[in-house]
Amino acid sequence: MKQLFLIMLCIFSIFSCAENEKQWQFVETIDLGTITPIGFVFQGNNIWIADGDHNQIVEVNQKGKIQNVFPNFERPMHLDIKGKTFFIPEYGSDQIIEFTNGQKDSLEVPDGLDAPAGVAVYNEEIAIADFYNHRIVYFDGKDWMFFGKEGKTKGELYYPTDVQILSSKIVVADAYNNRIQVFDKNGKSIQTIGETEKINAATGVFANEEEIIVTDFENNRVLVYNHRGELQQIISEKVEKPTDILIEKGTLYIANYKGKNLLKMNK
């Protein structure tokens, strides 16, 4: 009987450890000095940060040491990268700037934007979170389309701030509906996530084929979901007004707007 108990205990311990391994664990903080990160991407080992408060893009290394500063961006937000080109939404000028080797071009978008807060690129596809128009502007590689309108029901958006394109869907930080909303590539809303967690401003979103992760700005949390919308983890340790998240080479990075730093987490 005692042996049976010990065997059961061992099995339980093994499963517990396996479960723990799936959770993100804090590794270190990358201090950013005075930089207020809104969005960020990786190019090689360096991190390119949209410093919203200071109207600049800053390239830092993994220690947070500044490598380059690119001034004169009007409130840059959740940026993305494709090859050598950065796609930088300028919230203040209603443009998406294509920034390549120090040269700026403006992406031509039909119908105009009002405060673009996030952009995502995926192969030839582009999606833009059009904040004040409460919609997503999406280029499928051939044509532009618009989906979402101001409102709180499924399919409607209320101040979207970030967007991510996956192989078959588009994931939106539906900021002031306090949820994530997932659309298919025809613009049909197929899922809402996070409504039971009482998110207070879903400011940034990241998704890969395994997880959908959202920043919960006012509650100082990052919430990790699977694609069924089931909550997997709540990260709150050292999180201070988070605005963006990203998984790069198996490491989760969290941008702390108020903390002026990036948190690194591993599984």
Binding site: Y91, A115, T243
Partner: peptide, 15 residues
């Protein structure tokens, strides 16, 4: 005004 997006938005409209 809850977040930087709101603050920048207010600034944008006043500009």
């Amino acid at each position: 005004l809850g977040c930087p997006f709101c603050a920048y938005g207010l600034e944008k409209k006043f500009k």
